[in-house]
Measured scan of single mutants.
Amino acid sequence: EEDDHMEFCRVCKDGGELLCCDACPSSYHLHCLNPPLPEIPNGEWLCPRCTCP
């Protein structure tokens, strides 16, 4: 299965362990989110761009 998510964080543009949005190709480091997440959430996760009205 091919993964179309970005291979770098949308905020800092660095690679590493990234959290991928379930609705778009964006990826983020947990510490780059505002507010930062302490751990990878269970289940579906939507990035700030997808949850913003």
Rank of each mutant, 00 (worst) to 15 (best):
A23P: 03
E44T: 12
G15V: 09
L46V: 11
L30E: 07
L19V: 10
M6K: 15
L37N: 06
E1N: 15
C9W: 00
P41K: 11
E1K: 13
L46N: 15
C20K: 11
C24E: 02
N42S: 13
P41C: 08
E39V: 12
W45C: 02
H31A: 09
L46I: 14
L30G: 11
C47E: 01
E7P: 04
F8Y: 12
E1M: 01
P35V: 07
C52E: 14
E7D: 12
L46R: 10
E39M: 08
R10A: 06
E44S: 12
C24L: 00
D14G: 13
L33Q: 03
L18Y: 15
E2L: 10
C24G: 01
C50N: 02
C20Y: 14
S27V: 14
L30W: 06
M6G: 09
H31P: 04
C21N: 00
D22F: 07
L46A: 10
W45I: 02
G15W: 09
P36K: 14
P38V: 00
L30M: 14
P38S: 08
L18A: 01
C32G: 00
L30T: 13
E7A: 10
E44R: 08
D22M: 13
F8G: 12
H29P: 01
C50W: 03
L33S: 03
E7C: 14
N34E: 10
L18C: 05
G16M: 05
C47M: 00
G43H: 07
L19Y: 14
M6P: 10
I40A: 06
N42L: 09
P41V: 13
G15F: 13
E2P: 06
P48H: 12
C20D: 15
H5A: 05
E2R: 10
N42V: 09
P38R: 02
A23S: 15
L46S: 13
N42E: 11
H31N: 14
D14P: 00
C47K: 01
C9L: 01
W45H: 03
P38Y: 15
H29A: 00
L37F: 06
D4Q: 13
D3M: 15
H29M: 00
C32M: 01
P25E: 13
S26E: 12
P41Q: 10
L37G: 06
L37A: 12
H5C: 04
N34Y: 07
M6T: 14
P35H: 04
C50K: 02
C20G: 14
P35D: 05
K13V: 05
S27P: 03
D14W: 06
P41L: 11
C47T: 03
L18N: 00
C52N: 15
L33D: 04
R10M: 08
H29L: 03
N34L: 11
K13I: 02
W45A: 03
P48Q: 09
C50V: 02
Y28A: 03
E2D: 02
S27H: 12
C52D: 15
G16F: 09
H31D: 13
L19G: 02
P35Y: 03
C12W: 03
E44D: 13
C21K: 02
N42P: 15
S26I: 09
C32V: 00
P48M: 04
L37W: 08
C47Q: 06
S26T: 11
E1L: 01
C12A: 00
C20H: 09
D3W: 05
D4W: 11
H5G: 05
L33K: 01
K13W: 05
C52K: 06
E17I: 08
C32A: 01
C21W: 00
D3L: 13
C47V: 01
E44P: 09
P38H: 11
W45F: 02
P25S: 12
C24I: 00
C50H: 11
C32S: 00
S26D: 12
D14C: 05
N34G: 07
E17S: 06
G15R: 14
C21S: 00
C52S: 14
L19T: 07
E44W: 04
L46H: 07
C12K: 02
G16I: 07
C9E: 02
P35T: 07
C21R: 00
D22L: 10
P41N: 15
C32N: 04
C20F: 10
F8A: 11
L33E: 03
E39R: 05
P48K: 04
G15K: 15
E44M: 05
T51H: 06
M6Y: 04
V11S: 08
I40W: 02
P53G: 08
C50P: 03
C47L: 01
P36T: 14
Y28S: 02
V11M: 11
V11A: 05
P48W: 04
R10P: 04
V11N: 08
C32E: 05
E39S: 14
E7K: 04
T51D: 15
P35K: 06
R49P: 08
D4Y: 15
H5T: 09
K13A: 12
L30R: 11
C12T: 02
N34H: 05
H5D: 07
S26F: 10
H29Y: 02
L33N: 00
S26G: 10
S27A: 13
Y28N: 02
K13G: 11
E44H: 13
T51P: 09
N34T: 06
G43D: 06
M6I: 12
C24D: 01
L37D: 13
C52W: 07
Y28G: 03
D4G: 04
E44A: 08
S27M: 10
E44G: 10
G43R: 09
D22V: 09
E17C: 06
L18W: 00
C24N: 00
N34V: 09
L33H: 01
H29W: 00
G15H: 07
D14R: 07
S26V: 12
Y28P: 02
E7W: 05
C20Q: 12
D22C: 10
E1G: 05
K13R: 09
C24W: 00
H31W: 04
S26M: 08
H29F: 01
C24A: 02
P53F: 08
C24V: 02
H31R: 13
W45V: 02
D14V: 07
R10K: 06
H5V: 03
H29S: 01
C32T: 02
L30K: 10
R10F: 15
N34P: 03
E7R: 10
P53H: 11
L18T: 09
M6F: 13
I40T: 14
G43T: 07
E44Q: 13
E17L: 05
C9H: 00
E44C: 10
E17Q: 12
L46W: 07
P36A: 14
C47R: 01
G16L: 05
D14A: 14
L19W: 05
W45M: 03
I40F: 15
P41A: 07
L30P: 14
H5L: 06
D14F: 07
C47H: 06
E1A: 03
V11D: 13
P41I: 07
S26L: 11
C47P: 00
E39N: 14
C32F: 01
G43Q: 12
L37V: 08
T51W: 04
N42W: 07
A23C: 11
P38W: 11
C20W: 10
N34W: 06
A23R: 11
P25Q: 08
D22G: 13
P35C: 04
M6E: 07
C52Q: 08
C24R: 04
L19F: 11
L18D: 00
P36L: 06
W45L: 03
C52T: 13
E1C: 00
D3F: 15
L46C: 14
G43I: 04
C24P: 01
D22A: 13
P36N: 02
K13Q: 05
C21M: 00
